[in-house]
Design a protein around this nucleic acid. Structure first.
Lengths: 154, 154
DNA sequence: TTAATTTGAGACCAATTACTCTTAAATAGC
DNA sequence: GCTATTTAAGAGTAATTGGTCTCAAATTAA
């Protein structure tokens, strides 16, 4: 696939990051808890979250009482940060017709329009923090997993 | 991958449809010509275009002097039509967090914002006809293949 | 020190998507 | 009719992505 907004890893990463943003910021949360609550494969989620620890968005701790937690305040981490760490920023750069070198100078027929849309997605992702995401889920009792309105303890 | 705007097949289909829209509407164009000019694999393109003939967007003709041509005026065929025929309309329906059943009643934290963006993409695709695409390429000498400003004969 | 718990790393397998190839069917022209 | 040309259909292969599993390393607590 060529013009991809989010891979499955990206989706899981975003869901998990939002979940984690709902937890007290000072405690490590085991990945198995996140995986269980969100009905995501533990092993796969582990791999996904490793790409977030590798860019120092998360810090991790091994052993009993270990887990992962954010390395900085969730109000300062955007959806964009999470998505780019997992899926790269290609969606925010690439031509919709996948023409190499498509640009203002040498555009494809949809260049200008697609650029606008890309920019909107980018802005949405950049302006939405994980704190925003968490607050949405908490206050409006929104969904984060595939099992109906959130069953997560606040 | 989960949130996909266009697959590679979709990209090739759109490029080829635009190319074909630039040709005289009354003659069959061999798929090999399109593939050669756009530097797309002939066999793969053949399969992609078959999904357009199957929905009667293209008509095809076998044998010498055969090829494909549009079944109706290119001004009446939208980018949306092409994309949906090849990649389905899932991009225009699905939740960005891939939550089944995400809806106004039971939304995810990005539901409203993502819905807006989806709608914009949909509108862009619906309001852009293949005639528009072809005209852009012709009048502005835009790119359609990966070999710099279009070398296609007008 | 030993056992239990947790992430890290990477090998491995499965599923999907991208792409290739072969054969058949239709048609044109000789 | 025969040959060349073209699409149709689908089997088959390669590459990428998604997902599983095993083992090592770190840490806690008994």
């Amino acid at each position: 696939m060529v013009v991809v907004v989010l891979s499955k890893a990206g989706v899981y990463g975003l869901r998990a990051a939002t979940y984690l943003a709902m937890q007290p910021s000072d405690e490590y949360v085991p990945i198995s808890n996140i995986a269980d609550d969100l009905r995501i494969s533990f092993h796969f989620l582990t791999k996904v979250l490793q790409s977030l620890t590798q860019v120092n968005m998360l810090k991790s701790f091994r052993g009993p009482k270990g887990g992962v937690t954010f390395a900085r305040p969730v109000a300062e981490i955007s959806v964009y940060d999470v998505v780019v760490a997992i899926d790269t920023d290609s969606m925010f750069r690439e031509c919709i017709l996948a023409l190499p070198g498509c640009s203002d100078q040498s555009p494809c027929p949809l260049h200008a329009d697609w650029q606008q849309i890309r920019k909107r997605v980018r802005t949405l992702f950049k302006e939405t923090s994980l704190a925003d995401m968490a607050a949405q889920v908490k206050t409006k009792k929104l969904r984060l997993s595939d099992i109906g309105p959130s069953m997560l303890k606040s």
